[in-house]
């Protein structure tokens, strides 16, 4: 029997067992239902944003609308009295990067190690990783305060140190995202296959496992960035400046501008997540054409 005689997989033929709606997954909602669901959810998200925009366009107590505050902010830029917001934004982005790095460099190898070599520790690891979700931020800060006082003496009180606390805050979400991906990939067999082909552990990790965990890692990165950009409590209580604390300061003197800055921060976060998504998009095509001497 030749390879061509074999039956192709269902994926190749685009068929699946059971009733399948034309062009879709079995029991998938109709196009209209999907549009209704997405429209409703979109409206729910859009309403507060529209309200924010409306608020920033108000003239004052006299009524009416104009874009004077937007124009003023655009003319002065963030170099004047709002320069602190720009600094805070930089802090938050740096913290987001730091937190993502902590998650990726610590959590991913640990999860893989437990999954491949110490599967019995999986429950323990899950408990440890999920634990922070049950601890309120204020309690976390109380516990972290003495650690940070020691850290300040050893490494200074730079805002970057917040990344450690954020790493803990993000841990439950990142764990779930990566673990869900791990459960869907036969990591053990893939790593064994790579090792029998001559790959060392470094190659196994970076050439085989990480590319196949891309989706989970990306989701973890998304969550980490979103949490860090929106975090206020820990930064405020530990007296560090990030985007959210800076916005609160601005809102005390100029609530309109604070809302404009919040809107800009939202757009920035959206674009950042879009960029991460594009960078991590999965490969669906071969890298290059046919090999030398290959058949057409």
């Amino acid at each position: 029997m030749t390879a061509a005689q074999e039956t192709r997989s269902p994926v190749l033929h685009g068929t699946r067992p059971g009733p399948v709606a034309p062009g879709g997954v079995a029991h998938a909602p109709s196009r209209a239902a999907r549009a209704a669901i997405l429209g409703t959810i979109g409206l729910l998200f859009l309403l507060p944003i529209v309200a924010m925009v409306e608020f920033t366009l108000r003239k004052g107590l006299g009524g009416g609308y104009d874009a004077s505050r937007w124009v003023a902010l655009a003319q002065d830029g963030l170099t004047g009295q709002y320069r602190q917001v720009l600094v805070a934004l930089g802090n938050s982005v740096a913290l987001a990067v730091g937190t993502v790095l902590i998650v990726l460099l610590l959590l991913v190898p640990t999860l893989l190690l437990v999954h491949i070599r110490f599967p019995r520790l999986r429950r323990v690891l899950e408990f440890v990783c999920i634990l922070p979700i049950s601890i309120p931020a204020i309690v976390l800060v109380v516990g972290l305060a003495p650690v940070y006082s020691l850290l300040s003496r050893l490494a200074g009180s730079g805002v970057w140190t917040l990344a450690f606390a954020y790493g803990i805050t993000v841990l439950p979400y990142a764990y779930r995202a990566i673990q869900a991906n791990l459960d869907g990939v036969d990591v053990r067999t893939l790593s064994e296959a790579a090792r029998t082909l001559g790959a060392g552990w470094g190659s196994v990790l970076f050439r085989v496992l990480v590319p196949n965990l891309r989706r989970g890692i990306l989701a973890a990165a998304f969550i980490a960035v979103a949490v860090v950009l929106g975090e206020f409590t820990i930064a405020s209580l530990l007296s560090r400046v990030n985007l959210q604390t800076a916005l609160v300061v601005v809102s005390k003197s100029d609530p309109y501008t604070a809302v404009i800055l919040s809107l800009l921060a939202l757009i920035f976060a959206f674009l950042l997540l879009l960029l991460i998504g594009r960078l991590g998009a999965e490969r669906t095509r071969p890298r290059r054409r046919r090999p030398i001497g290959g058949q057409p």
Binding site: V185, D186, T189, L190, E192, A193, A194, R195, T196, L197, G198, A199, G200, V208, P211, N212, R214, E282, R283, P286, R287, P291, G294
Partner: peptide, 24 residues
């Protein structure tokens, strides 16, 4: 170590690397 034993192995479960083409 496994990587230095110079063995070829075919596994029971499908073990192709999903992110690579057959050729890769």
């Amino acid at each position: 170590p496994t990587s230095r034993r110079d063995m070829g192995m075919v596994f029971q479960s499908y073990s192709l690397f999903p992110h690579l083409t057959a050729g890769e």
